[in-house]
């Protein structure tokens, strides 16, 4: 029973982290908070890949001359690339946030919609009794 939980514990908690990140992106209107949510989602995908690469009783994949069991090095390489691509997209997103702040004077999604002439949900509710 306990073993069955340990076999998939990593997957379950990583899915929880992913969904928390996704919820921050969907539900929070602040643009910086959205990028933080995206970062959490991204990091949990990294953890998922590395979890798949783990081998029981394995060590870090560095040759020492002794015959040893190594964890799978390929996911490590893929995620090294993904981390660097992730920081590039974060930097570009944050630059967009700074630019939006310059143009609109706010980084809240709803305020931007209002200044674009859209009515927010709250205002629509006020109009309709």
């Amino acid at each position: 029973m306990l073993e069955a939980i340990f076999n998939h514990y990593n997957y379950w908690l990583i899915i929880f982290l992913m969904m928390t990140g996704l919820y921050i992106v969907v539900s929070r209107g602040n643009l910086i908070k959205k990028i933080v949510g995206l970062n959490i989602f991204q990091t949990s995908v990294f953890l998922l890949y590395i979890t798949i690469g783990k081998v029981n009783d394995g060590t870090a994949p560095i040759l020492t001359g002794k015959s040893e069991i190594f964890s799978n090095p390929l996911p490590h390489v893929l995620i090294l690339t993904a981390i660097v691509v992730g920081i590039s997209t974060t930097a570009l997103g944050l630059a967009l946030v700074v630019r939006i702040r310059e143009s609109y004077g706010t980084i809240e999604e709803e305020d931007i919609l209002v200044s674009e002439g859209h009515q927010t949900e709250m205002e629509l509710n006020k109009i309709q009794p």
Binding site: N39, T43, F46, L47, I50, T51, G53, K54, V55, G58, T59, A60, P61, I62, F70, S71, P75, H76, I79, L80, I83, V84, G86, I87
Partner: peptide, 17 residues
């Protein structure tokens, strides 16, 4: 990541992330 044997990735994540 260190406990999962991915020492290179852990190093990069600590520096970049």
């Amino acid at each position: 990541l260190v406990t999962l044997d991915a020492v290179d990735v852990a190093f990069t994540e600590a520096a970049v992330g």
